[in-house]
């Protein structure tokens, strides 16, 4: 089973990388872009199992290691 994890900076944390990307997009003429937030995408290949159990375990992985709860939020999707 594949798990797709998306980690993003909390809205209250400034994102200099996003601001720089926005500037570059504007230079290319994409002026409709109002804001950019850059994050991380992590894909796991894990053993099949009970969905509720997998959700619990992936949540734990995100809280313990994959994200820093002070500055980041996470969400994930399971793909069979």
């Amino acid at each position: 089973m594949k798990v797709k994890i998306f980690i993003s900076l909390k809205p209250t944390v400034s994102d200099p990388q996003g601001t720089t990307i926005k500037g570059a997009l504007h230079k290319l003429g994409f002026n409709m872009v109002n804001d950019v937030r850059a994050g991380k995408f992590i894909e796991l290949d894990i053993e099949d199992g009970e969905e509720s159990d997998i959700r619990l375990q992936v949540s734990e992985m995100c809280q313990k290691l994959l994200s820093n709860p002070i500055i980041e939020d996470f969400e994930f999707e399971l793909e069979k």
């Binding site: 944390v13 400034s14 200099p16 990388q17 720089t20 820093n68 002070i70 500055i71």
Partner: peptide
């Protein structure tokens, strides 16, 4: 900071 022994976190420099 990551270990929680000190509060807060160090993120990317403002000017990258």
């Amino acid at each position: 900071c990551e270990s929680g022994i000190l509060p807060g976190v160090l993120i990317r420099n403002r000017d990258l």
